[in-house]
């Protein structure tokens, strides 16, 4: 049981894919102009990540070593397509705003990295928990980033005006510079809190 919890929280905290490992950065920067976009992107990633982890883990003993990579790609691409079409049906407006970033989940390094490093080596239960933890870590990172950007750039959270009318939103926050600079300082702030330093 402890191992399950450790695996789960590993993806959210220690190895948060976006905030600690800094992989698969396109979507977190691109879709966090509004909290709702970040949330639905996160849901799509949780689904693809968990589903491919489960299937790859279940098939790990029968997938031949040499052709495992193409097989992983096909599995991930299939679930990405399922996520893409489902989101289009449930949330057509959000789906349109996310644009190519939903199909692009297929090339998101996080999914492939978990398939290769975790699901192909661990049992189904553990791989499920790993997928959920990593996906949730990704989703939380997007929500944090989107909260800062939507609040400062539009004065709202999930479309609800939170800041008083006298607050004049800084439009730049929902433009590309706002994404890069905010995430840069967010990562720097986390490094400061955890005492981690990087190389130049």
């Amino acid at each position: 049981m402890k191992k399950l919890w450790d695996t789960f929280f590993n993806g959210i905290i220690n190895e948060n894919p976006t905030l600690r490992l800094v992989i698969g950065m396109c979507a977190p920067l691109a879709v966090t102009t509004a909290v709702a976009n970040g949330f639905w992107m996160g849901i799509a990633v949780i689904f693809v990540l968990t589903a491919s982890n489960i299937l790859i883990s279940a098939l790990r003993k029968i997938i031949p070593e040499q052709i495992r990579i193409p097989i992983f790609v096909v599995i991930i691409a299939t679930f990405t397509t399922v996520a893409d079409l489902s989101l289009k049906a449930i949330q057509p407006d959000i789906h349109a705003k996310l644009g190519v970033f939903v199909p692009l989940i297929v090339v998101n390094c996080i999914i492939f990295a978990r398939a290769e490093a975790f699901a192909s080596k661990n049992n189904v239960l553990l791989s499920t928990v790993d997928g959920l933890g990593m996906g949730l870590g990704f989703t939380l990172a997007l929500i944090v980033l989107a909260t800062i950007r939507e609040l400062l750039g539009n004065g709202s959270w999930w479309g609800i005006k939170l800041l008083p009318a006298s607050f004049e939103p800084a439009i730049v926050m929902i433009l590309p510079p706002g994404a890069f600079v905010t995430l840069g300082y967010l990562l720097g702030g986390l490094n400061l809190l955890t005492g981690k330093t990087g190389e130049n």
Binding site: P177, F180, V181, G184, N191, L192, K196, G198, N200
Partner: peptide, 26 residues
């Protein structure tokens, strides 16, 4: 150019790269 700059330790690596990209996008 910034290989020898005294960048604050917690900003080194990805954080400074993202901030620089943001300034370039401006």
């Amino acid at each position: 150019r910034w290989a020898f700059a005294e960048i604050p330790p917690s900003m080194r690596g990805f954080p400074i790269a993202l901030v620089a990209t943001g300034l370039m996008s401006i």
